[in-house]
Every structure is written in structure tokens, then in C-alpha cells.
């Protein structure tokens, strides 16, 4: 019995497994960073959508409707690639000599010197930004709706006190809108958490990639424990992990909503 436990313990704490456990940091970082950026982009988009100037309003509306009309995976893949190419194009226009361009045989980059190598850190940051951009479009809608549900009397009172439109927006409207935005933002957060499972598509060795590697059948005793295809067990662990994260987030948002709704008389506290 104890032998068994020791045996499985040593299997579950071998180097590969430890790397797997460590790779959870990428997922957690991408979720938190993506969530924070989504709120920032959402605020920005909602401000644009509320703008008094038509072109800005159009930009806000265009952003929130187009990005939501396209699958998140597409944008998630496209943004980092496009950003990388944009930077390489910019660098190439500065440093590439005509000879270097003529010597280049591949389709991209224009010359070898302009090549930008992206490591895990860079991809992780780019992935967070694209998560923020995609779900910022959802957050734009949520925040736009929440800004409108702030009681008009509050804004009128602020104006009567002589606040400028910017002061009314930042000191009254945005301060008070969180209560109304929280239910919607919690949904956006759930979407972001689920989207973090896509990190492996950007060459990040995340939990999904490691689960695949660890579960792959092994027939060589020299490599480690000989076992058949165990991938579904590892994916089951991830399945449960994500359900637990969802459950925890639900509890956390409930607590936040209870706290934020204190002292506010409204049906926003459901």
C-alpha cells in the first residue's frame, strides 16, 4: 500500500510532471492579464461608443460588432501573427539593404536581419493582448449598457454641482456603473478563462500541450513509466480543473457583487 503511494507519488512528481504543474502559470497569467486588458479595452470602447462625435462612435460600434462577429480563435491567431509581421516590416524598412533583400529566398521577412524571433514570453504577452482585444469587444457592450443604467438623477446632480462632462463621466458615471456591469463582466471573465485553453496554438508550452505529451503512449522503459495511451486521463484532469476555476470564479463574483451592491437601492442586486 505505502509502496504504491510512493510509486505513484514519484511518478506524479517526476521532471515532466513538475514542468506541467509549472506551466499552469502561463494559463493563469494569460487569464488575469487578458481580463485586465479586456476591462481596459471595454472602457475605451464604451467611451468611444458614447462619444458625442460620430466617427468615434462609429469606431466604437465597429470594434464591438466586428470582433464579436468573428470567432475568437481566428482573432487570437491573427493578432499575434499580424503584429509580428508589422514589426518586422517596420524593422525591414529601416535596416534592410537592397543586397540583403535580393539575397532573401523565403517569402518573409524581407531580409534575414529583420527576422524577429518570438519566445514564450513574447507570445504570452501577445496572447494576453489579443484576449484583451477580443473580449474587450464583449466588455464594451456590457459597459456601454451599464453606463446607461446609472440613474439619470445622479448625473443631473453632478452637472448641477458644476462638474464638466469629463468629470461627470469619470467621477460619477464610471464609479457607479460597476454594480450594473458586474454580472456581464463575470460572463466575459468565464469566456476568457475558457479561451486560455487555446494558448498552445501560439506555440506556448501550456497545460494542454503538456497533458498531450505526458499522456502519449510510452513503450520505452528508459524514457519513464511504460503505459498505453493515457491522454484522456490527463485531459480529464484539465476538464475538472477548468470546472473548478469556473466554480471559484462564480463564488468570487458573487462575493464581489454582494459587496459592491451594498448601499445601492436597485434591482441590479439579484
Amino acid at each position: 500500500m505505502t509502496d504504491d503511494i510512493a510509486y505513484w507519488f514519484s511518478y506524479l512528481t517526476n521532471g515532466k510532471h513538475l514542468t506541467w504543474y509549472a506551466s499552469f502559470q502561463f494559463t493563469i497569467f494569460a487569464a488575469l492579464m487578458g481580463g485586465a486588458l479586456a476591462v481596459v479595452f471595454g472602457l475605451l470602447g464604451a467611451t468611444l461608443k458614447n462619444s458625442r462625435f460620430l466617427p468615434l462612435r462609429l469606431i466604437g460600434t465597429f470594434y464591438s460588432s466586428i470582433v464579436r462577429g468573428v470567432p475568437d480563435v481566428l482573432f487570437f491567431l491573427f493578432f499575434p501573427l499580424a503584429f509580428e509581421q508589422g514589426v518586422e516590416w517596420l524593422v525591414a524598412s529601416q535596416i534592410c539593404t537592397p543586397e540583403a533583400i535580393a539575397a532573401q529566398t523565403a517569402a518573409w521577412p524581407p531580409c534575414k536581419e529583420a527576422n524577429w524571433f518570438l519566445g514564450t514570453t513574447e507570445y504570452l504577452l501577445l496572447a494576453s493582448v489579443s484576449l484583451g482585444l477580443v473580449y474587450g469587444a464583449f466588455a464594451t457592450n456590457v459597459i456601454h449598457g451599464a453606463l446607461r443604467s446609472v440613474p439619470n438623477g445622479q448625473l443631473e446632480a453632478a452637472r448641477a454641482f458644476g462638474m464638466s462632462p469629463g468629470q461627470v463621466l469619470w467621477r460619477i458615471q464610471i464609479r457607479q456603473m460597476w454594480v450594473y456591469a458586474l454580472p456581464g463582466l463575470s460572463n466575459v471573465w468565464m469566456l476568457i478563462v475558457k479561451a486560455t485553453s487555446l494558448l498552445s496554438l501560439l506555440q506556448i508550452a501550456d497545460i494542454v500541450l503538456w497533458a498531450d505529451r505526458l499522456g502519449a503512449p510510452n513503450f520505452l522503459p528508459a524514457v519513464g513509466l511504460v503505459h498505453e495511451d493515457w491522454r484522456w486521463r490527463y485531459y480529464l484532469v484539465l476538464f475538472v480543473f477548468y470546472i473548478l476555476v469556473t466554480w471559484l470564479s462564480e463564488r468570487a463574483f458573487e462575493a464581489i457583487m454582494r459587496r459592491a451592491g451594498k448601499g445601492i437601492l436597485s434591482e441590479a442586486r439579484v
Binding site: 468565464m190 475558457k194 485553453s197 487555446l198 495511451d229 491522454r231 485531459y235 480529464l236 477548468y242 470546472i243
Partner: peptide, 21 residues
């Protein structure tokens, strides 16, 4: 709750690898 609380990507991998095994 389980299917709404977990990513579709993981569900694909899980069911496909289960079918493979």
C-alpha cells in the same frame, strides 16, 4: 454545469483521446 464550465477545446481533446484509447 460541467459542459458550460469547461472549454470546448478540452472537451474535443478529451472525447477524441477517449475514443482513441
Amino acid at each position: 454545469y460541467a459542459f458550460r464550465g469547461s472549454p470546448l477545446f478540452i472537451q474535443f481533446f478529451m472525447f477524441y483521446s477517449l475514443a482513441l484509447s
